[in-house]
Amino acid sequence: MAGNTKFVLLFLLLSSSSPCFGIEQDIRCLKSVQGSLADPGGVLRSWDFENETNGFICRFTGVECWHPDENKILSLRLGNLGLEGQFPVALQNCSSLTGLDLSNNNFLGPIPQDISWVMPYLTSLDLSYNSFSGSIPHNISNMTYLNVLNLQHNQLSGQIPPQFTLLTRLIGFNVADNLLSGPIPSSLQNFSASNFAGNQGLCGAPLDDCPPSRRRWRPVRISMHRLNDQSSIGVAVGFVVGFVVAFYFPHLFVCSERLRAYVVRI
């Protein structure tokens, strides 16, 4: 109940923020996204910023607004447009964004490590079917409103951040067909095994159990100088002790009468 109240308060806050501020920021956001990405299909080039009527950006392909007559972006649906480039960090200027879909494009490079700061209010993030690489940012766990996180069919590596236990609102999660390894966090083990498939190094429910950890033997470096010194001392001490024992107790060591006589003479 408290979580729902918190989300309603967020909605009211975003809705009541300064219209001028929202218009300026969101228009700047779309201009930057348009300029930072390769657009072979020309979809983003169709965004015409010369028209300054109320809600004009709401009619752009892939843009959904909070209200059709207000230039405040609710979500960007840019999937399957053939877009190319790295993750558009200009999205930080879309101040009220709650949904982002960049799936089925040709994005590459890392997902920004500060993505929760860039887009703190996201409820849905779909980056699937691209070529994103590197680790999954652990600070996604700070996106407390997140309901859906789709990262499948990329080249992401490393572990699923254990901090994802903080994403208590998740109802959709998929990281299949990446290069991930390590144990699956317990809070995500209720999702289907198919949502983790294609990651050779992942283990734990709902996949196979993780292998028991093995104790690693670490080689110990021995100084040859020190070893030689200790060996020399050991030989010297052994010679002296052996000589003394042989002198006073020859019957313990000498079996031959000839050798015994030689020892007695000494």
Results as ranks from 00 to 15, higher is better:
residue 80 N to M: 04
residue 27 I to T: 14
residue 198 G to A: 08
residue 113 Q to V: 11
residue 18 S to G: 02
residue 14 L to W: 04
residue 76 L to P: 03
residue 48 D to E: 14
residue 242 G to F: 08
residue 93 N to R: 03
residue 122 L to P: 01
residue 138 H to G: 05
residue 81 L to K: 00
residue 79 G to S: 13
residue 142 N to T: 07
residue 183 P to L: 06
residue 7 F to R: 07
residue 148 V to I: 15
residue 82 G to A: 03
residue 240 V to H: 03
residue 228 N to V: 10
residue 257 E to W: 09
residue 266 I to L: 14
residue 208 D to P: 01
residue 88 P to V: 01
residue 171 I to L: 09
residue 148 V to D: 12
residue 6 K to L: 07
residue 185 P to T: 11
residue 124 S to K: 06
residue 209 D to C: 06
residue 16 S to V: 04
residue 125 L to S: 03
residue 210 C to I: 00
residue 90 A to Q: 00
residue 212 P to F: 12
residue 254 V to R: 02
residue 88 P to W: 00
residue 73 I to Q: 04
residue 187 S to W: 07
residue 97 L to C: 01
residue 159 Q to R: 15
residue 129 Y to H: 12
residue 101 D to A: 02
residue 205 A to W: 05
residue 56 F to M: 04
residue 197 A to L: 10
residue 175 V to A: 03
residue 62 G to H: 00
residue 245 V to C: 09
residue 79 G to D: 12
residue 149 L to T: 12
residue 240 V to F: 14
residue 144 T to F: 12
residue 95 S to T: 11
residue 176 A to K: 07
residue 136 I to S: 10
residue 34 Q to R: 15
residue 29 C to H: 05
residue 187 S to N: 11
residue 7 F to Y: 10
residue 260 R to Q: 02
residue 152 Q to E: 15
residue 90 A to P: 00
residue 41 G to F: 07
residue 214 R to F: 06
residue 77 R to Q: 14
residue 183 P to G: 09
residue 83 L to C: 01
residue 61 T to F: 10
residue 111 I to V: 01
residue 195 N to D: 14
residue 230 Q to I: 05
residue 118 V to Y: 03
residue 38 A to I: 15
residue 45 R to M: 14
residue 241 V to G: 03
residue 85 G to C: 03
residue 100 L to A: 04
residue 165 T to C: 15
residue 110 P to S: 06
residue 20 C to R: 11
residue 173 F to E: 10
residue 48 D to G: 11
residue 106 N to S: 08
residue 146 L to K: 06
residue 152 Q to W: 09
residue 148 V to S: 15
residue 115 I to A: 01
residue 163 Q to Y: 13
residue 16 S to H: 10
residue 89 V to R: 06
residue 57 I to L: 11
residue 222 I to R: 08
residue 73 I to C: 05
residue 164 F to L: 11
residue 136 I to H: 07
residue 18 S to A: 06
residue 144 T to C: 06
residue 17 S to F: 02
residue 38 A to Y: 12
residue 239 F to T: 06
residue 39 D to A: 05
residue 143 M to N: 01
residue 160 I to F: 08
residue 130 N to C: 03
residue 32 S to A: 15
residue 76 L to M: 05
residue 179 L to C: 07
